[in-house]
Each structure stands twice: as structure tokens, then as C-alpha cells.
Design a protein around this nucleic acid. Structure first.
Lengths: 339, 339
DNA sequence: GTGAAAGCGCTAACAG
DNA sequence: CTGTTAGCGCTTTCAC
């Protein structure tokens, strides 16, 4: 691999002149410029980014940590991140914890050693995790979930509104006895969506039956086991189910079907987050779109800003607005009866 | 950020002693070792990987280039790559071309400048692309697709066998008039799957009707438009359709359903590659699994070997064996009538 | 405007 | 076994 030195010899100029034409950081006479450029072309020279990084103390590289790339929630987000990174000549190092929480520390150390310029983290929900991140001193922004009282850089969605949209759709379709299949209440999104559900039910003058509120995880299994539990324990089944996320809704529908209960004919189901799988799920799932691609984009843009600012910039929290996506799982026709 | 120099001062030893304990590259007396370790802990020192890389000319970083991370084909592969990278303290830089072919060149340059140790590329099918890759001089392995006459490092699947498995399943279910919805014949996998189809039909003593062989792309749209075309132009519809990939099968099924044709009651459909979407597709899709996670893992392991070898290692091509996955789209019960 | 020289943080000879 | 030293390839003052 040719180096700057080779170029300077070949072009018969000094190192700093070569540097100046490469970085356009100072005026260089046309003749010298051309000589340098020719030499670069001739030797097929490419600047060595690691040497440059060592000197400049910046790598044009960011890390992104996600819990499970197999979860359809992430690919659009990652794509969003990567797209703006590409436009700014940044590279992204992908860290997939595979839900092994302890991998995070290892990744953090590796990133630190690699001198990345910033970090994007999806679904950090606990104060302990946050502490570990803060300890690195890296610039970062959190995506989607956040620890309690977190007031720094963040991009996420209006979770309360997301369940309100879901509930209102259900109510609009004529459903009244609505169950909620929630997530782990240690996670802010689960708490917010749950409270959105309750307040929206109230606002619609609907009673919320506490035996129809389930806690769980953001997994298909959780939806599945909870629905089985409901089928066994609850006397009066709901006529609709509002799930905290699409994967949970998937589990719900699978459980329902296994029990011979039809969706939406017998029970309607609505998801939340509009995963890529939902459009063509066994029964096309009505959901609430979270524009995760946009989340990825915005978080990367925010991070770029933070990186570029010399002085501490005042934190920004970007909260996106979700939107309803009507498909078939809440009864496509029923709508018309009601309105 | 503390440097080795800080450590050496604090511990009152020389730089090389510090280096020796960090890299365990030479014997250091227990006392000195301890003094160094204490200093490291006290100053919260982390070695600077970019300085090390500059010196060692190796970055413990690899790049992976994929065409579209939104395609469910990739996440398992990426996970496989990332998992073995993690185990070897390597980081992976993700490059998503978003199907913009020209992005490849930019990524290649960026990677080169960043001095990555190796490159993994999924779905490179043309000689031109290959040339560009070769020009970088980087160590690399190709995944899934390969250009004509390519004889270097590669990991993929036995494509011929994959369609044979599909056809045999169809035949076993009692179907005889079978259509093939293929891919772009510029791509080796499409060619191989097509020839697997034809030869397997022959071996089963079945006629292949040329009007029932379609060329297309590896997209949902392609399956959809081709099936519409078939419905319009073909007099005697097939009783089964063998699709070149799962997304193509998705398009086929959507088109069929729109036309009021039931799957599998009226026409059976089988996919190929068993995407994550297939299990819970509108009608659970029978398919042929390609173990893409395994492909990712093996390709990364191969790349690691290549990187470590001093001298040119003889190329290896790893061809995985696909396996049939029976779900509902080929008639679950029919099986029993036939056998 | 151009060139010489110092140094980013680390590794690896090489002496001692 | 420990310490000194010379770079890795680049950027950036600072003289000229």
C-alpha cells in the first residue's frame, strides 16, 4: 500500500503539500496539485484512516447496540441508521447482544478501545445499564426505551398515544370488553402503553376489567401463554384484545386459533409497532406504526450533531407520533356496521 | 483518556514493561505486573486500538456487505457472522447497499481506508462486481451467490438439491402438473434451482410444460406479476407451483388469493429458503431451509482462517445441504391420501 | 504558499 | 528480565 511519503517523493513535493491537497486544507498551486493528484492516481493511493484517526482522535465510526437483530423491529431501524451514516461517510459497527445482556459490557469495552465517535443504543431500560454506558464517557443516544428519569438524548415514540390509537380503533369498531396484553412493567414503553390503554378506556366510558389486564414480556411466547391463561381462568371472554406489541399479538392469535377461536370473527386483536411480519401474518394484523426507520435516521442525525458540537449541547428528546394501520384482525367490515 | 505512558509513570516502570503485561508478550516479574495492573485499574486505562492497529497493521475488524437488511434472508446470516466475530474479538462493520448497486464501490473504498482485515459479501453474482472486489486486494469470502467460474472462497447452499427437495415433496403429495417460478438467470442460484427443477421433474417421469416456467426476480412483486400473467395466459393451470424463493412464493400466493384461488386446496405452493416470515405467513409456507445462520457462521470462520494464514491458503468452497420444511401450503392432509 | 519536524499511542527490536 | 528507541502513516504548527 502506498503511503503519503511515496506520493510526496513521486510528485517531488513535501508531505504537508500532499496532505493539503488530499484534505483541501490549504491553498496549493495548480501545478503542484496536479502533480500530487497524478501521483495518487498512479500509485493507486488511499489514505490510511487508522493513521488519520490516531492523529485526529476521531474515527468516523459509530457503534450500534441492539438486543436481537432477528427481531423484525430492528432491521428498519438499522437501515435508517446506516443510511444517514453512509451519507456522512461514517461506518457503523453492529453489535448484536442476542439478548445476552452481559455482552453489552464486552461490546462497550471493544468500542471504547476502537475509539468510536459515538454510540447508538436501542432498548436500554434500566438505570444500571445506563450507568455502565455513562461510565464509558462516550457520546450516545438512546432509542425507543429509556431508564426512569432519563433526560438526555433520546428518540422514541409516543407510547401513550400508540395504545390510544389502538383502543380508539377497537372502540370505533364496536368492541367494548377489551383486554390488554402488556409487557414487562420495568420497561417504560410497557408502562406507558398500559397507562395509555387504561386512560383511553376511561375516556371512552369503558370499564377496564382487571382480570383482563395481563403483564408479560415482549415475546410471542408471552402472548401465547397469557392467552392460554386467560382462556382457562376468565369466564367472560373479551371481544377484543389490545396487545402491547405485534409479536405479543402474534402469540395471542396463535393461542386463540389453537383453541378454535377465530380472529377477528370471535375476538379482534390489535398489535402495536407494525412489524414487517404483520402485513402478511396468518391474519393480517391491524397495528400502530412506529416508523422505526425514521427512528433510526433521526437518532443517527442527532448523534452526528452531538459528535460535531464542540461544547456540550443541550439534550434533545425526539418523540415520534405513531399512526394506525388497519388490516384485518379487528374485523374489516364491522367498521361499516358501526359507523 | 489515560495512555500507556501514564501507566508507566504511575507504576514506575518502562513502556515496554507495560506493553508486556498488557499483551502477555514477555515475562514480567509478579511485583511489576501487579504494579502495572494496579495503575491500569486506578487510571481506568484502556488500550487504544487505533494506535495498536497502526502499528500492527491489523484492525480486528471485518466488513460485511449485504444488499438489503430488510430482506428476511439476511438477519440470521448477519447474526451468525456477528456471533463468531464476537467470540474472536472482532467487530463487524455493516454495509447495507439498499439495493443501490453503486454503493458497493463507496463501501469498498471506505473499508479499504479503514484497513479492515477482511470482507464478507453476500450475493455477489457478476464478474464485474468480483473484479472490483479483487482490485481492493482485501481478503474476502463470498456468500450464497457467486459469479460464473468463481473458484475461490465461498459458502453457499446446494441449490440443485434445494429444488429437488421441493419437487419431490410436491410429487409425494400427488401433484403432477407443476409450474416453476424462477429468478433472474444471470444469478447462479436461479440457474441452479431451475435446472434442479427440470432434472427432478424428469427423474420423476413428469413432463415440464415450458409455458409453466417463468423467469423473474427474487422479489414478491415478481411472483405476483408472474402469477397474474400465468392466470391470464395459461389454459390448464398447474396443480402446484414451485417458487425459486420464499418471497417469490409470497407474491404467488397473494396473486392466487386475489384471483379467488385457494392455497393449497386449489393450487399448492412451495417456497425455497425458509424465510423468517414463512412460518406464519397468510398460509404457512412449506419451504426448504437454507440454514442462513450457519452460512453466516461458516463464512466468518472461513474468513478468520484466511486472515490468520500467513501464506495464501488454498480456496475452500463450503456447500451446505438444505432440508425440507413441511407446513401447510402444499396440503397437509393430502399426504396421507397418497402414501 | 511550501517544507521540516514533532507527535498521536502503541509495538518490537535491541541493548543493557 | 527491563528499559530505550525507532517507527506505523498521518496532521499540524511553525518557520521560511
Amino acid at each position: 500500500m502506498a503511503t503519503m511519503k511515496d506520493i510526496s517523493k513521486k510528485a517531488n513535493v513535501s508531505l504537508s503539500t500532499v496532505s493539503a491537497v488530499i484534505n483541501q486544507s490549504a491553498y496549493v498551486s495548480p501545478e503542484l496539485t496536479k502533480r500530487v493528484q497524478d501521483a495518487i492516481a498512479e500509485l493507486n493511493y488511499r489514505p490510511n484512516a487508522v493513521a488519520r484517526s490516531l492523529k485526529k482522535k476521531s474515527t468516523n465510526t459509530i457503534g450500534v447496540i441492539v438486543t436481537d437483530i432477528l427481531n423484525p423491529f430492528y432491521p428498519p431501524m438499522i437501515k435508517g441508521i446506516e443510511d444517514v451514516a453512509f451519507d456522512h461517510n461514517f461506518n457503523v459497527i453492529l453489535c448484536n447482544t442476542s439478548n445476552e445482556h452481559r455482552r453489552i459490557s464486552t461490546y462497550l469495552e471493544l468500542m471504547l478501545e476502537k475509539q468510536i465517535d459515538g454510540l447508538l443504543l436501542a432498548n436500554i431500560a434500566t438505570t444500571e445499564d445506563l450507568k455502565e454506558i455513562e461510565k464509558t464517557g462516550l457520546k450516545y443516544v438512546l432509542i425507543n426505551r429509556k431508564p426512569p428519569f432519563y433526560d438526555k438524548n433520546f428518540v422514541g415514540i409516543n407510547n401513550i398515544l400508540s395504545t390510544e390509537l389502538a383502543v380508539n380503533h377497537l372502540v370505533g369498531q364496536g368492541y367494548k370488553r377489551i383486554a390488554f396484553f402488556g409487557g414487562n412493567l420495568k420497561i417504560n414503553t410497557a408502562r406507558e402503553r398500559r397507562s395509555g390503554f387504561i386512560s383511553c378506556m376511561n375516556q371512552n366510558g369503558l370499564e377496564v376489567d382487571p382480570t383482563l389486564i395481563f403483564e408479560g414480556e415482549y415475546t410471542l411466547e408471552s402472548g401465547y401463554t397469557n392467552v392460554k391463561k386467560m382462556l382457562k381462568e376468565v369466564d367472560a371472554l373479551p371481544d377484543a384484545i389490545c396487545a402491547v406489541s405485534d409479536v405479543v399479538a402474534f402469540g395471542v392469535i396463535k393461542g386463540l386459533r389453537e383453541a378454535g377461536i377465530r380472529v377477528p370473527e370471535d375476538i379482534a386483536v390489535i398489535g402495536n409497532d407494525n412489524s414487517a411480519f404483520s402485513e402478511n401474518f396468518l391474519v393480517p394484523l391491524s397495528s400502530v406504526d412506529h416508523s422505526t426507520y425514521e427512528m433510526g435516521k433521526l437518532s443517527m442525525e442527532l448523534l452526528l450533531q452531538i459528535i460535531k458540537e464542540k461544547h456540550e449541547i443541550t439534550p434533545r428528546q425526539i418523540i415520534l407520533t405513531p399512526s394506525l394501520v388497519v388490516r384485518e384482525s379487528c374485523g374489516y367490515e364491522k367498521k361499516h356496521w358501526v359507523q
